[in-house]
Design a protein around this nucleic acid. Structure first.
Length: 156
DNA sequence: GCCAACGTTGGC
DNA sequence: GCCAACGTTGGC
């Protein structure tokens, strides 16, 4: 089984690393992904045990804020079937689900958020999908990138 | 609050 | 199937 690494974007005013840490067992469902490319990554390529960088966006202190781990297989996002949910999708059916979720578990909250400018300044990280493709909320991170960022986090 | 990037929608 | 308009993302 190939281990992969990911970056998940989230707005901390909605759900940030502190919220994840506060969940029972540090676990939550990562739901509400409504972008096809992010969905494909989530549905087709995630595996339990994969590493996840939690990235805070649209906030005062954007950047990598913590580390988590995928702890379930992908499964249909229940919110797409719930008419009361903001993530409801009338075109989804249980037979033909359009959107997927995965469960993740908190592993680490960084002492300091690593801002995008710091990441971008490192030669090892200039090729990150983060800087090459806007608006992708579930994106792959290479093993080298992962090691570099986790190293930064440890030194922080 | 600005504005660039870019995915989605909808008329044709 | 094209493409302009529109809405959202997201750093600054």
């Amino acid at each position: 089984m190939t281990r992969r690494y990911w970056l998940f974007k989230t707005e901390p005013s909605e759900f940030g690393i502190a919220d994840l840490a506060a969940q029972p067992d540090g676990k939550t469902r990562w739901d509400g992904i409504r972008n096809y490319q992010a969905r494909n990554n989530l549905r087709d390529l995630t595996t339990p045990g994969d590493g996840v960088l939690i990235y805070h966006s649209s906030c005062r202190e954007p950047g990598v804020a913590g580390i988590a781990e995928i702890c379930s297989a992908p499964y249909p996002d229940p919110a797409q079937f719930d008419p009361d949910s903001p993530y409801f999708d009338s075109k989804s059916t249980p037979d033909q689900p359009r959107w997927y979720s995965v469960d993740i578990r908190h592993r680490d909250t960084l002492k300091r958020v690593i801002p995008p400018a710091t990441l971008k300044a490192l030669p090892d990280l200039t090729e990150m999908v983060l800087f090459r493709q806007a608006r992708l909320s579930v994106q792959p991170v290479s093993e080298d990138e992962w090691r570099t960022i986790v190293g930064l986090a440890g030194a922080a």
